[in-house]
Simulated assay, not measured.
Amino acid sequence: MQGDQLLAYVRERHHDLANGDYGRQMRQQQVIKAVLAKAGSNPSTIFNHRFIDLLSKNILTDLSWNSFQNLALNYRSGLGNIQSDQMRGTGEMINGQSMQIMSQSEKDRVHQVLTEALR
């Protein structure tokens, strides 16, 4: 997929009634992983000025250029070891905004996952 078709894919949430917004988040993660895999297989992709210009218009970071290069070059091997998880809550409308409320058991589960990953 490219361009408008890819953008529609990552933004869609109404036809995926089983997963709704969670499905949209999973599709966005899928695309980000694919972009990282492509960039990781060819370091010149990461340092392409057009690519950097596009990123800089869509990402806000306080990383210096040297830190960005360090991450891109020295942590490429980590691309094969990405693990994803997703907190799941129950939907509620609060002050006209759709919110996900997380149960204490879900917070505890995610805390445990993070604790184990950081060991």
Rank of each mutant, 00 (worst) to 15 (best):
A8R: 15
G23L: 03
T61S: 15
Q104K: 10
T61W: 05
V35H: 03
R76C: 00
I94T: 09
L55T: 03
D62Y: 08
R88W: 00
L79H: 03
Q2L: 12
V113C: 02
T90D: 11
L79T: 08
I32G: 03
E106Y: 03
V35I: 15
S56G: 12
F68H: 03
S41Q: 14
F51L: 07
L17R: 14
T115F: 01
L73Y: 00
Q104C: 01
L114V: 07
F51Y: 14
S103Y: 07
R11V: 02
N66E: 09
G89L: 04
N48H: 06
Q25C: 05
M102R: 02
D53F: 09
G80M: 07
Q5K: 14
A34C: 10
D62H: 09
V110A: 01
I52R: 03
A8L: 15
M26Q: 13
R50L: 13
Y9V: 09
M93G: 02
Q112K: 08
Q25L: 12
H15C: 07
E116V: 04
E12S: 10
N74Y: 08
L73W: 00
G23W: 06
I94V: 15
K38G: 09
I101Y: 02
P43A: 10
Q83W: 12
M102K: 01
R50D: 15
L36K: 01
A37K: 15
N42Q: 12
R76S: 07
N95V: 04
I32T: 08
L36P: 01
M99G: 04
M1F: 06
D21T: 07
R27D: 06
V31G: 06
L79C: 02
L17C: 03
H111F: 00
E116P: 00
S84L: 11
R88S: 10
S64V: 04
N48P: 00
L6I: 07
G91T: 12
D4F: 10
N58M: 12
S103W: 06
K33H: 11
Y9K: 10
I101V: 15
K38L: 12
D62R: 10
M1W: 05
N81R: 15
Q97G: 00
G91M: 11
V110F: 06
Q104S: 08
L17Y: 10
V113F: 09
Q104P: 00
F51T: 13
G96T: 08
L17M: 09
R88Q: 14
I52K: 02
S98M: 08
G20D: 10
Q29E: 11
R88C: 05
K33R: 14
S56F: 00
T45L: 13
T115E: 03
S84C: 07
L63R: 11
Q104I: 04
I101P: 01
S77I: 09
L6V: 08
M102D: 00
N74M: 05
R27K: 14
